[in-house]
């Protein structure tokens, strides 16, 4: 119990440092015109009158097999357009991309070295023979947004499954 607490509080400290860093940098030199805000929700399938629908709830209780929706919202606070905006999201090791978890966007199965649509990627299979990559092989997801107008905002999302 005690060790667990230590691990948790360390992680918390790291998060604080990471958040303080850009803020300090912004005050001193190049202010970031864009803000990123992450969020996670639990996708709960509820069946009512024989019809299944997915509800998004706070992830209070999360167990292996649960579906999570990770959202990153961006907002251009600057006076200029932001271009070539590329959001990269490494998947937490305990999360596998859902089979249709990042439709239409690029993924990586090699730790972010190479990118492509999931259907075009291969990984080394058993006996060294390459096989088609599956959603569970994905290590990173990225979204490319050509331009964000001043004051504009949007969000990118991927669906994950707790391994």
């Amino acid at each position: 119990m005690k060790l667990s607490f230590v691990v948790k509080s360390l992680a918390g400290a790291a998060a604080m440092v990471a958040m303080a860093g850009p803020a300090l940098a912004a005050a001193q030199s190049t202010p970031s015109p864009v803000t990123l805000k992450g969020d996670v929700m639990l996708e709960k399938t509820v069946t009512e009158n024989g019809v299944s629908k997915v509800q998004l709830v706070e992830p209070k209780v999360v167990i292996p097999g649960d579906h999570l929706l990770f959202t990153t919202r961006y907002h251009n606070d600057g006076a200029q357009a932001v271009t070539n905006f590329v959001v990269t999201n490494p998947l937490p090791s305990a999360v596998a991309l859902a089979s249709d978890g990042a439709q239409g966007t690029e993924v990586s199965v090699d730790g972010g070295k190479t990118w492509g649509q999931l259907g075009s990627l291969k990984v080394a299979g058993t006996e060294g023979t390459p096989r088609a990559a599956t959603a569970a092989d994905v290590t990173h997801v990225r979204w490319i947004i050509p331009s964000i107008a001043p004051g504009a905002s949007g969000e990118v999302q991927y669906h994950g499954i707790v391994r």
Binding site: A11, A15, T30, V34, L36, F85, V156
Partner: peptide, 29 residues
Amino acid sequence: LIENTATATYQTGSTTGSVTSNKVTVKVD
């Protein structure tokens, strides 16, 4: 702990920059 952080790179005019999101954390029960 499931910890998710996104980073973004971008251009404004001729300069490039990057920004990191807050970290969202979920504990596996």
